[in-house]
């Protein structure tokens, strides 16, 4: 469904360049008209109302905004939305259906891998990318793969355990 109208500021309509883009988000094709300078994280959060992707810094350090871009983890605050045109993005909302949980989500809960929850979506997306590539990572491999994502609450030890929990569960599931 398209919106019937979107209010724009007086004078802004002519001056502001826009582009129409189509991005596959969590398997669903989404089309939006955006300013070229809009960053991907803001498209997801404000344009597509998927607020699970957080932003925590302006310098590509914290990783709270990590999503999978064509299957690889990227920091969605460091890409423009227009760069996602024609590509696939997966966010935390796409990890599992509404009534289900992905093994990584279960692992984070089971091993107390989160406290305030703010870094968690990015942390889980980075974990998913790791397990997609390496189904049974060592502690060092997990710590290395998650070293682009900052957490202030947990001290990481339980996050490592959470990823290991998920790896075991995924292995059991075959």
């Amino acid at each position: 469904m398209t919106s019937l109208f979107q209010e724009v500021s007086p004078g802004a309509a002519e001056e502001t360049p826009t582009r129409q883009i189509t991005v596959t988000v969590n398997g669903e094709s989404r089309t939006a008209v955006v300013e070229p300078r809009l960053v991907l994280a803001h498209l997801l959060r404000n344009g597509l109302n998927m607020t699970g992707t957080h932003t925590g810094c302006d310098t590509s350090n914290c990783g709270a905004c990590t999503v999978l871009f064509d299957g690889k983890p990227v920091k969605s605050c460091t890409m423009f939305a227009v760069q996602a045109d024609g590509h696939e993005v997966m966010t935390v909302e796409g990890l599992a259906g509404p009534s289900e949980l992905h093994a990584i989500q279960e692992g984070f809960k089971e091993e107390h891998g989160l406290q305030c929850g703010f870094c968690t979506p990015g942390m889980m997306m980075a974990s998913k990318a790791l397990l997609d590539e390496n189904p049974s990572p060592s502690e060092d491999e997990i710590r290395w793969a998650l070293s682009g994502n900052l957490c202030r609450c947990t001290g990481y030890q339980n996050i490592v355990k959470a990823v290991m929990w998920a790896a075991r569960k995924l292995e059991d599931q075959g």
């Binding site: 871009f69 690889k72 990227v74 980075a126 682009g148």
Partner: peptide
């Protein structure tokens, strides 16, 4: 170089 996530881009 940078961190593992940034290295993907």
């Amino acid at each position: 170089v940078a961190d593992p996530i940034v290295r993907n881009r």
